[in-house]
Amino acid sequence: MSNWIEVGKVTDIPKLGARVVETSRGDIGIFRTADDEIFALRDKCPHKNGPLSQGIVHGKRVTCPLHSWKIELESGEAVAPDVGCAARYETKIENGIIFLTL
């Protein structure tokens, strides 16, 4: 069943920013919104693999640093008219600690 992995403190990630979790299968971006919601997406833009964790976070979206596609943090879907999806992962926060399941 769900296998929660402890990632770190919410406050380790800047507000409206992101950090990555490095895995053997590639990076996962962990994003923090203005109201401390946390989302996790595979750190590859569906366009040309841009590292989403390096983009600008606004609302529940991130703008990719390479060619400015906008990606929904909740679903990983690109905002229309662009089409594509970055894999998303479940997260939860307990006592200010982020957990992630792969």
């Binding site: 992995i5 770190g8 800047p14 979790v21 490095e22 895995t23 792969l102």
Partner: peptide
Amino acid sequence: RDNYIPIKKIG
């Protein structure tokens, strides 16, 4: 410095 390194490494 923290901003440049992964928050965590798995596996």
